[in-house]
Design a protein around this nucleic acid. Structure first.
Lengths: 117, 117
DNA sequence: AGTCTATATTCAGTTTTTTGAATACGAAGA
DNA sequence: TCTTCGTATTCAAAAAACTGAATATAGACT
């Protein structure tokens, strides 16, 4: 009963940061690799990694390793609900594939688009 | 489009504090005066007032003056929704009337209970 | 093994937040 | 008007978070 507020506090604290919110917003559309975030946000990789650690320590995101890339995703529906309430509905107008992202997923999509020309 | 995350950040920042969360949780049951919070939380009045200012500046609560007392309430449903998601359903097991609260509302209720003996 | 690539961690300087003490303000009653 | 009561504000010291630079790690490829 005593940790009820401190748990929620830790969660909100992690949410209270514009870059971290932006990352979480990206994750609403599904899992995303770090290089993707780097390309999309225009921030240094080390910086993004730092914020991801904060998010993971707060129990908001989980990660999965696939080859060289690490993919992050939201932990559960509670997180998604908080984002929905705070940010509104998911905006999927942002591109899912980025030319400057080196991960296999993006590289493949980009080369396919090029050969389809 | 640019202030989208900074707005939400400010809101989360105000939420990211155990005492402020506890105050907001109280307000889920309806408006509450400052002296009530003082009695319920066991914190000094000045401290509570500080936290209320933070909550008001973040646009989470509003206040109403009635005689000597000031009553606070949640601003809108968005705030209530965030609390619902983060804290779970409203817990109305806590006493609405406190013997150590000097506001008219509580004083009256306490004296009634005494005379009903 | 050596190298490259994607990601993670450490560290220190700077800025921001937190907290408590002291004090100010405004309304109501004597 | 003087006092009391409930609430608000100011201030400074302590604690915490932010940010950027440098560096470490782990896996894949040659």
């Amino acid at each position: 009963m005593v940790g009820r507020y401190t748990d929620a506090t830790a969660r909100f604290k992690a949410l209270a940061h514009p870059v971290r919110l932006q990352i979480l917003d990206m994750l609403r559309g599904g899992e995303v690799c770090v290089c993707h975030m780097e390309a999309a946000l225009g921030k240094r990789q080390a910086y993004i990694s730092q914020q991801l650690i904060v998010l993971r320590d707060a129990g908001l995101v989980e990660s999965r390793k696939d080859g060289l890339s690490v993919y992050y995703r939201l932990v559960d529906e509670v997180v998604a609900d908080l984002l929905e309430t705070a940010l509104g509905p998911v905006d999927d107008s942002a591109p899912q594939v980025l030319k400057t992202c080196p991960c296999p997923r993006c590289a493949e999509a980009v080369s396919e688009a090029a050969s389809a020309k």
